[in-house]
Nucleic acid binder design. Structure first.
Lengths: 166, 166
DNA sequence: TGTCTTTACTTTGACATCAAAGTAAACTCC
DNA sequence: GGAGTTTACTTTGATGTCAAAGTAAAGACA
């Protein structure tokens, strides 16, 4: 590898020398999550750019693709993806503009809007998924056991701030 | 806990039923990182708002605070925090505007700019750090051993895409 | 010394995120 | 039926991120 020190390790040392040893591990862990996410997001968005997609939009399409009839209320999309309603509106607007999704009022609830994936959207998201599978999801650079451990630990963490069965 | 299924577990099942079992763990892990980061960032930014800071700006201040003379070239800040130069410019602009940081040309390199933390910036960032230590870094909701495992796994992951000693 | 290349920073644009605010439908209760 | 509350979505604004482009200084080489 290189010769530079890991910036996060440096920060952890600084935390300790400031008398904050108790919280230094927590700080290093939180910062690590930020860094990994940053790199992952950039990598994924780069890979999706030729498809005219971003990760956020890819996730919406993927969710609709897997839904029973390819259609969901906008609010349900937000719940499933665990993002703010305005973020769903933003993504659906972009996808609708590109012809990957259509919108219609929800007959069962006058306040609600349904987003449906188009055939074009389906074809596109499958291609995009193939790329992400090959380049990212199959390439997480850790052994399978470590990946599993990591996932389980993250799931425990998530269960502390999310309302789902654990 | 709640009664809803974990959306990421749902997604992992969908991945498998689509014939993508090999990549389903990687996908679930990547998505978990995104979710945890999202919640952490929102939590941290909420806590820092009363200080007039965001996490990005807090990190810049913290870095300057810990530097030998409280001053660093803007490019070095970007390297240490592992963010894009434009992001450093953005944060330093905001901090300078608030009087937490000053800027001056680097006498050793005419292309370079030095950012220095002010006394006001130091006082502020120590208060902010105390809050984050108490509310976030000491409160990662996992046992110490799990936190350590998680950190080590993330460090291994990071070492695969970062140029530092491992 | 002059030219070409590299380096350092800033500006601009696109992007997704959440908070706050607004609009309207649905629900609850009297 | 009407008033008050809750729910669902959208719009607007602030934010940080990176890519692309621009400006200028420094370095390398003839």
């Amino acid at each position: 590898m290189g010769t530079a020190r890991d910036p996060i390790e440096l920060a952890r040392d600084n935390w300790r020398s400031a008398g904050w040893a108790d919280s230094s591990d927590g700080m290093a862990l939180v910062t690590s999550v930020m860094r990994v996410q940053q790199v992952l997001l950039t990598t994924i968005d780069d890979l999706l750019r030729p498809f005219g997609l971003t990760f956020a939009r890819f996730e919406v399409l993927m969710l609709l693709h897997f839904s029973r009839v390819g259609e969901l209320p906008v609010g349900k999309i937000g719940e499933r993806l665990q993002v703010h309603p305005a973020s769903v509106t933003n993504a659906v607007n972009r996808l609708e503009g590109a012809g990957h999704v259509t919108r219609r009022p929800n007959a069962d609830d006058g306040r609600s809007v349904l987003a449906a994936i188009t055939a074009q959207g389906r074809a596109l998201v499958l291609d995009a998924a193939a790329t992400l599978n090959a380049e990212v999801f199959l390439n997480v650079p850790l052994p399978a056991a470590a990946r599993h451990d990591l996932y389980e630990l993250m799931r425990r963490w998530r269960s502390e701030f999310e309302d789902f069965d654990e």
